[in-house]
Design a protein around this nucleic acid. Structure first.
Lengths: 243, 243
DNA sequence: CAGTGGTCTAGACCACTTT
DNA sequence: AAGTGGTCTAGACCACTGA
């Protein structure tokens, strides 16, 4: 087992994930942890950490005393809301090959909710970038990002805005986007939103209203992303806490 | 440190959580893991497991090389969708004191989507229970549960249906509900739903369409829960996978 | 009662941040 | 250079399942 690059645990996770999706386990039963550890030449702890991640993803179910098993229902989950990072990657996980169109890049005064989220002074100015993610000719996600003016250089062009925003922060502001706090809001689309997403106004949709932070807790971006429910259905696994 | 009942890790987690919410750490800085381990008389591994759970909840942020810190933004998260179990508990976490009204208990043929979710034969019959969760006089959640006929005894009464459904399965069917696979669907309320939730028809809302399974992967229940967005806002933390 | 996953320990070394 | 969290090991014992 090679050991450079990703952690051992991650390598074991990927190895097992691959065997799972390729249906490489008899009757969906995964070998005992001690056996996997011996086979892969790692400690049982490492195997357990890898299995824990797979269980969290929903790919497997562990039953104390009985064994570990493939979870067909969980394998259908493509959108792990709490581990969703860039929309590009999420769409790729759905088997899409996404493209991006930048609709607008503009600077102006912040709306009040944006000023609060970004902890700006009252007269704060923000850079606003609006883009749409497409699968073939179908618009799937409409995203608006608000960033405090001055954090990014002035000469942001469409090329820059088209990529994932966390890459933009790393490259242009030397800042690391660490996590988002997101609200899941049900809306009906207004005329402008409906036009951008190529559906009729009044269609229900999910809006993710969220703020992105650095590891230090500094808000970097306030964003709204509207998902076309008919093309992109959020699906999650719910279980009891503390497991 | 006492050691009966919950696991050591869980005890440490609760202890630290309490100190966090009571603002018991200077400048939001949490002591080093080795220090906590010595202070609490447990191994560093146990402390780390407890901290991992808190980080996952959003209560803290860990920064390699720098330290572990309280996360004020994360502390506002009350609805961890992927760890949500009973609506009663979720509402209590919001500081509500929920009550339940059972609207209907009836037996009849399954709708097609229910029959598929529960893997029933085409002519499958299901027991359907509808209930509303209230906070004071405000209805907050409208839930409909469909259970295969015969799984539960015939004489289910309102008393039985009012409690959490996983308790019903344990008590009446000796079956353990282990996890749900849930879809997050945006809807606009129809007349009946709107009346039950005491809002006007056409209001947007989140519908959680979900199937509950045993650890063995047998579907036990197909359910729809509609949340009043103005009273109960789903809020989650998003981070990069594999952390 | 044999086998499985669950918990916990003690310790080593590494990667990273801060001073 | 010192201190912090991140990874990994080897081993012990417990709780639970199923034949």
């Amino acid at each position: 087992m090679i050991t450079r690059g990703p952690s051992l645990t991650e390598q074991v996770r990927q190895h097992l994930k691959q065997r799972i999706v390729e249906d490489g386990f008899e009757e969906g039963r995964i070998p005992p942890e001690t056996e996997l550890a011996a086979e892969l030449g790692v400690s049982r702890t490492t195997v357990r950490d890898a299995l824990s991640r797979l269980a969290h993803e929903g790919a497997i179910v562990r039953r104390q005393g009985a064994g570990t098993f493939v979870n067909p229902a969980g394998l259908r989950i493509k959108t792990r809301l709490e581990e969703m990072w860039s929309y590009e990657d999420m769409l790729r996980d759905h088997g899409f090959t996404p493209s991006v169109e930048v609709l607008a890049i503009e600077t102006g005064p912040a709306r009040q909710d944006t000023a609060e989220a970004l902890q700006l002074a009252d007269d704060g100015t923000v850079l606003t970038m609006t883009k749409v993610f497409y699968e073939d000719d179908d618009p799937v996600v409409l995203t608006t990002n608000h960033v405090p003016a001055g954090l990014l250089p002035d000469e942001i062009d469409e090329q820059d805005a088209a990529g994932p925003i966390f890459e933009l922060f790393e490259r242009e502001a030397n800042a690391q986007l660490s996590y988002y706090v997101s609200e899941v809001v049900p809306i009906v689309l207004d005329g402008v939103q409906a036009t951008s997403l190529d559906v009729t106004a009044g269609t229900p949709a999910i809006s993710l209203d969220e703020t992105g932070f650095t590891g230090e807790g500094t808000p970097l971006v306030h964003a709204q992303s509207i998902l076309r429910d008919d093309l992109l259905r959020l699906r999650v696994m719910r279980r009891q806490a503390g497991t």
